[in-house]
Simulated assay, not measured.
Amino acid sequence: MAIDALVFDLDGTLVDSAADIAEAVNRLFDALALPRVDAALVRGWIGDGVSALVATALAHQRSALALEQALPVFMAGYHDCLLRSPQLYPGVAPALASLQQAGVPMAICTNKPVELVPPLLAHLGIAGHFPVIVGGGSLPQRKPDPAPLLAAAQGLGVAVQNCLMVGDSATDHAAAIAAQMPVALVRYGYPRGLDLEAVPSVAVVDDLRALLPLLGIAGADELPAGR
């Protein structure tokens, strides 16, 4: 298997943003005079895009408000909370730096609204690593449809089979399988019930630096692949 490029999911793979997304959900609930919920609960709702997240939130509260009415309220809070407290997962910054130094092309493929991705990447200091960003709204389709991954590979100018999709969830895994793109999974994200060890993948890792040997990149920060 020749891996020439990497396509990363964002939330749960590169960035821990669950607390900020949960706060945006709770601000929606505040606006609707509904009780707040724990961030741990919202963590299990993340991954399929804003519409799915808000629909799940409304269903949890048994709210009769139409999704179309709730979405603008949620998005206002989402914008306000975007840079509240996001954190890169341990190992992400050095792994990305090593990949860039080695000349490996990289893209973001996320269901997060595409307009929110560049300011988040800039805030975290990793915007320069990703010339290609495919997000929610970039295409009519979202993951687990394969179209966003196919678009990311095309944007990088690399054949699909020579890209490695790196994600954390069933949504990411299903999209990669549908696109016939090799996939690696991280253990620390928002798997939402996905049995990481049971599904086919190139690797399951605790730290992105463990992926570097797959691309022939070694160094002091190299870690065991975990499987």
Results as ranks from 00 to 15, higher is better:
residue 138 S to P: 04
residue 172 D to F: 14
residue 155 G to D: 10
residue 174 A to S: 10
residue 56 T to K: 15
residue 130 F to K: 13
residue 114 V to N: 02
residue 54 V to I: 15
residue 57 A to Y: 15
residue 29 F to V: 03
residue 145 D to I: 02
residue 101 Q to T: 14
residue 225 A to M: 14
residue 189 G to F: 05
residue 26 N to M: 06
residue 117 V to D: 05
residue 45 W to I: 04
residue 168 D to Y: 10
residue 93 A to L: 12
residue 31 A to Q: 02
residue 188 Y to R: 13
residue 92 V to G: 05
residue 190 Y to R: 07
residue 146 P to D: 14
residue 81 C to S: 11
residue 222 E to K: 01
residue 110 T to S: 14
residue 49 G to F: 14
residue 155 G to Y: 01
residue 102 A to P: 15
residue 150 L to A: 11
residue 187 R to H: 14
residue 71 L to R: 07
residue 157 G to S: 02
residue 225 A to N: 09
residue 51 S to I: 13
residue 89 Y to S: 07
residue 132 V to F: 05
residue 208 L to T: 07
residue 36 R to W: 12
residue 210 A to Y: 08
residue 175 A to G: 06
residue 1 M to A: 15
residue 155 G to F: 07
residue 215 L to E: 09
residue 194 L to D: 06
residue 107 A to T: 08
residue 158 V to M: 01
residue 12 G to L: 05
residue 111 N to Q: 09
residue 66 A to F: 12
residue 155 G to T: 08
residue 107 A to I: 00
residue 138 S to M: 08
residue 114 V to D: 15
residue 200 P to V: 00
residue 156 L to G: 02
residue 102 A to W: 01
residue 8 F to Y: 09
residue 32 L to Q: 07
residue 147 A to Y: 08
residue 93 A to M: 14
residue 62 R to K: 13
residue 58 L to C: 09
residue 26 N to Y: 13
residue 209 R to M: 14
residue 90 P to A: 12
residue 193 G to P: 13
residue 214 L to F: 09
residue 163 C to D: 02
residue 105 P to A: 07
residue 73 V to Q: 04
residue 34 L to V: 03
residue 62 R to I: 05
residue 62 R to C: 11
residue 65 L to D: 11
residue 134 V to S: 00
residue 24 A to R: 01
residue 202 V to H: 03
residue 74 F to L: 01
residue 203 A to K: 10
residue 146 P to E: 04
residue 203 A to W: 12
residue 159 A to N: 12
residue 186 V to A: 10
residue 12 G to T: 10
residue 28 L to E: 11
residue 18 A to T: 08
residue 143 K to T: 03
residue 96 L to R: 07
residue 40 A to F: 00
residue 71 L to S: 04
residue 114 V to C: 13
residue 87 Q to G: 01
residue 103 G to D: 10
residue 71 L to W: 14
residue 85 S to T: 06
residue 32 L to W: 11
residue 15 V to D: 13
residue 88 L to K: 12
residue 45 W to L: 15
residue 169 S to Q: 00
residue 155 G to S: 09
residue 108 I to A: 05
residue 154 Q to C: 13
residue 150 L to T: 01
residue 11 D to W: 06
residue 152 A to C: 03
residue 213 P to R: 03
residue 68 E to M: 04
residue 9 D to A: 04
residue 47 G to I: 05
residue 17 S to M: 10
residue 152 A to D: 03
residue 28 L to G: 10
residue 205 V to R: 04
residue 198 A to I: 00
residue 107 A to D: 04
residue 196 L to Y: 03
residue 72 P to W: 11
residue 195 D to W: 00
residue 172 D to I: 09
residue 52 A to F: 08
residue 205 V to I: 10
residue 143 K to M: 03
residue 67 L to G: 07
residue 28 L to C: 12
residue 121 L to P: 01
residue 102 A to G: 10
residue 226 G to T: 11
residue 208 L to V: 01
residue 139 L to I: 05
residue 130 F to I: 14
residue 166 V to L: 12
residue 224 P to A: 11
residue 85 S to H: 02
residue 202 V to C: 12
residue 108 I to L: 00
residue 92 V to I: 14
residue 173 H to F: 14
residue 187 R to W: 01
residue 81 C to D: 08
residue 35 P to C: 02
residue 111 N to Y: 02
residue 77 G to H: 03
residue 52 A to W: 07
residue 152 A to G: 01
residue 213 P to T: 06
residue 197 E to P: 10
residue 224 P to T: 05
